[in-house]
């Protein structure tokens, strides 16, 4: 029920080691990992506040679909099958290079890997980039 879980700060490229203080599936605080090679038990203000955005009221808690011009919360099945269907139609009609994929410097290595694999193997385009240029 009470645990300290090792993680990595996601607010800059330094990659400081942190511990999330977790009580019954909620985050209480962020602490620096004392023995981490990068930060050795220190953090900046962003690192110390890392847990605060996670359970924000502003977070999306489910998928949305635009229906009659407005976004409505729907099931995953519905959102996914709509997206898949539309992507397939567009690829069939205009070719795979009519699709672009923007990966992210905020998601994990595994997810970036899957996303470029998705662009290349599933859609069939090399139109994949991330926002680091920006």
């Amino acid at each position: 029920m009470y645990r300290l879980v090792p993680s990595v700060c996601s607010y800059c490229g330094a990659g400081c080691g942190v511990l999330f203080e977790v009580l019954d599936n909620h985050l209480l605080s962020t602490l620096p990992l004392k023995t981490h090679p990068v930060n050795e038990g220190r953090l900046c203000i962003k690192g110390w506040s890392l847990h605060e955005y996670v359970e924000s009221d502003m977070r999306l808690t489910g998928p949305y679909l635009r229906l009659n011009g407005r976004l409505h919360q729907v099931t995953w099945e519905r959102a996914l099958s709509f997206a898949a269907q539309r992507l397939k139609e567009i690829v069939a009609r205009y070719g795979p290079d009519s699709v672009g994929v923007l990966a992210s410097a905020k998601i994990s290595n595994e997810e970036n890997y899957l996303l470029q694999k998705f662009a290349r193997a599933v859609v069939g385009t090399n139109n994949v980039d991330h926002c680091a240029r920006l």
Binding site: M1, Y2, R3, L4, P6, L19, L33, T35, H36
Partner: peptide, 19 residues
Amino acid sequence: DLFLGYKEVAGHPLPYAFS
């Protein structure tokens, strides 16, 4: 009900709640 000490994870001593 709980005892806070340390346990090693991959060579790093981390605070740990024993129960």
